[in-house]
Design a protein around this nucleic acid. Sequence first.
DNA 1: GTTAAAGAGGACTAAAATGGTCCTATATAG
DNA 2: CTATATAGGACCATTTTAGTCCTCTTTAAC
Lengths: 159, 159
Amino acid sequence: MLKLSKLTDYAAVIMAQIARDPEQAHTAAELAVRVSLPHPTVGKTLKMLSKSGLLESRRGSHGGYVLSRSPAEITASDIIAAIEGPIGMTECSHADGDCELMDTCGVADNWQRVSQAIRTLLDCVTLAHLAQSGPLKLPVQLPIQSVTLPSTTGAVREH
Amino acid sequence: MLKLSKLTDYAAVIMAQIARDPEQAHTAAELAVRVSLPHPTVGKTLKMLSKSGLLESRRGSHGGYVLSRSPAEITASDIIAAIEGPIGMTECSHADGDCELMDTCGVADNWQRVSQAIRTLLDCVTLAHLAQSGPLKLPVQLPIQSVTLPSTTGAVREH
DNA sequence: GTTAAAGAGGACTAAAATGGTCCTATATAG
DNA sequence: CTATATAGGACCATTTTAGTCCTCTTTAAC
């Protein structure tokens, strides 16, 4: 399924919520109500986002969270990485290269390229995009310039 | 992490192994040795791949598995979907729309666009690509023509 | 100062997904 | 008839994930 974890999903929703009112500081309690999720869970998510530097927190009375950068400067990659750690399709796509199947694997290099392509894609999607309420009519080509894949004779399929 | 499951990883390695010698029928036992994985696990993976139509099986003595299409016509999407089911980053990106948080979510549409982009990307990666042993020097631009994202004022970041 | 509101940090539990094994049935070649 | 394979599940152990809770610290207001 290549799915995001629930917490990551929550994180995106919460970040979008904050992005729609970026001046205010938002408390966990308030956000929990807005996104219809339990307070402790929202709190946990906010802590993670804060710890990875996507949010800034103010403690004490009148405290809460604000975005540490503008919505256009926070990417989907950032949010995913904040909750799930480094983005990669395989263990070996980022790790310290201690996969014992390296020699019999034979596909590691190419999976890494694909992982890189997905990272690039997610780098292009900003919180500003995500926070937009409805689907927009204006299509924009996604630039994936930095992505390269090995060429096989005619093996790129057309769809 | 946006990670593939181990079984999917195995599936890719196994498919690549078969793709490198596509004439022969390969038994689970033989492939298990080649990819240094336990026989039962390889067997399970092969069954899944066979059930989704990526492999054809011949039972009985002298049996085994062969690709049901050429390596250039089997995509990474196919392999992932065979093991993990439909590709999508969120529950709602393919399901029957019964997410109870729909109204407070506000990001569903855009996640679905991103999911679609990843699907398109993975559709462009074929088994022929994956089966290539080493990293290749010939870079090829990935065509992501069919992918569109909502446009926000200048919110697409350059990298 | 005291108090109330808020986040920080971590421990803990319950539930779900995943990985892996094994068993029985069925098909096929020789 | 027998040996060799896959088909199809059942099953269990492990890991991951989700979710809750408790205590500590910080801050603002009175």
